[in-house]
Amino acid sequence: MMDNVGGSSSNIAENSGIIREQDRLLPIANVGKIMKQILPPNAKISKESKETMQECVSEFISFVTSEASEKCRKERRKTVNGDDICWALGSLGFDDYAEPLRRYLQRYREQELDRANNPPKRG
């Protein structure tokens, strides 16, 4: 995807190696939509709340992925897969999340298998 990064920001240079906001954080609109799912329909979420949650969920992703990546490093593997993420959640004490994620991963793989066996026909 060709990104047209805003040129008016003088503190952001193209080749300075700075990690861009869209590479470090989840999109703020998607975060807002997920937050809105649990709230009543007429609820409003401030911009500050979304930005704070954006930072929290992005850090959580890095936290869990770092744990999974460390396991892969010890086992001399290069690819972090779904099982490593589930293991990392359990290893970090998020057992309540690890079990539903394992079930999700199992169903996801079943769907992928069905899709591979029955490719959609092109009209």
């Binding site: 990104d3 047209n4 990064v5 805003g6 040129g7 008016s8 920001s9 503190n11 952001i12 190696g17 700075i18 990690i19 861009r20 906001e21 869209q22 470090r24 930005e51 850090e59 890095s62 936290f63 770092s66 460390e70």
Partner: peptide
Amino acid sequence: RRRQSRAKLKAQNKLIKSRKPYLHESR
């Protein structure tokens, strides 16, 4: 471990100081 990663990025001055109001100039 995460603290070290963030400190490393901060030492390399890779973290964004402030948020930009928009990402794409054309939009």
